[in-house]
Design a binder for these strands. Sequence first.
DNA 1: GCGTGTGAATTCCTTCACAGCT
DNA 2: AGCTGTGAAGGAATTCACACGC
Lengths: 223, 223
Amino acid sequence: MPPPELAAKVRALPAAAVARLTLYLRALNALLAEGAERVSSEELAEASGVSSSNVRKDLSYLGSYGTRGVGYEAQFLSRRITAALGLTQEWRVAIVGAGNLGRALARYAGFESRGFDVVALLDQDQLVIGHEVGWLRVSDVAQLESVLERSKANMVVLALPAEAAQDICDRVIAAGVHSILSFAPVLLQVPEYVNLRKVDMATELQILAYHAQRLPETGSESA
Amino acid sequence: MPPPELAAKVRALPAAAVARLTLYLRALNALLAEGAERVSSEELAEASGVSSSNVRKDLSYLGSYGTRGVGYEAQFLSRRITAALGLTQEWRVAIVGAGNLGRALARYAGFESRGFDVVALLDQDQLVIGHEVGWLRVSDVAQLESVLERSKANMVVLALPAEAAQDICDRVIAAGVHSILSFAPVLLQVPEYVNLRKVDMATELQILAYHAQRLPETGSESA
DNA sequence: GCGTGTGAATTCCTTCACAGCT
DNA sequence: AGCTGTGAAGGAATTCACACGC
């Protein structure tokens, strides 16, 4: 039972608000880098592509930290959102699958810069195991459990083919890691206490296709 | 004014339904591969992780193609969804950015297999231009417009750093491609007639972090 | 005066529950 | 009898609009 050290972590945020808070954080940090000290909901809205009333509503879930007639103190708000999202603690990510995508993710600087440490990269293929990718050496997925333990990973990214995903997913959960981001194009069966998010690029293109196909071919011209 | 060749494309589907239709399609094709001929909403629900009433409601947007007391004819339903999503036409995808992610996407077999043809890969870096990645040769992004035209691309994937994204995005739109999937972690400003979807992996991890941090550390044990 | 904070109104999505067809 | 199709109910998220405090 860890005692709550920072105030106000308890109330659950609406799922949609959580997603947007990450956008506000990104926008805020950009504004801070430009030297901003105060921001209004209107500015944040502009910078993150959300309506200003939505911004205010979302921020109000964290508490009343703005000043009427003035706005929000940028530095403070950034820290407040960081805390609310749980980004004050260290997140250690293991990537399973060292194919094209897994290797790209392992080298992706965007993770490190936002506080996610990629601590392990695993694969099943003997030809890949032992090779260096970025600053990591590829481990054998047969040793998944011990690698997760030694690396103290608390998140896993699955970057592997559909066929392998469920099996590895089960092992990851059994090993005690309950936060999983999957790029595998299959439905993964997990207990409800597990946090699973899915990213499927083919799905994204299909959704684009739907909208593209419905549009009356605006603005362009086949010369 | 293109005459509607296939029946019933006109009514707009709810956005949430479109996203799920891609799941049903995937599930259906898997079931078909296993030799299924009929499926019930219950089976589809199971296979795609959606409630069965939601499945029925979504399918009802496409028309009444099920048989009461029996279910849906799998082959037919698959084709119907394919048509509704606009996947009967050829989609030609150009990937801008041949860094880790762009190269991984270019080689990702999942696109081809779902009807998306990767027809071009572009980069700005002279050291990369001309190299082969998969079955493609990297083009110079300076020639973006002519490459898009020659390759007849009608979708673009942006796999490039935040700084470059807006500029390239503008050029893509000016060149007449209005369906864009962006992996760049920035807000892109686009006219409303453009279809833009965003995938941000750092955001996904941050959302995971939020949920992980709220959970009372279930089931696992730091040995 | 100005921008936040928030109830109320609205829109969008999901689930319920059952009538209707096979 | 069984499963679809769908109005109606319920819930979630967004927008509105204005009172409140600086």
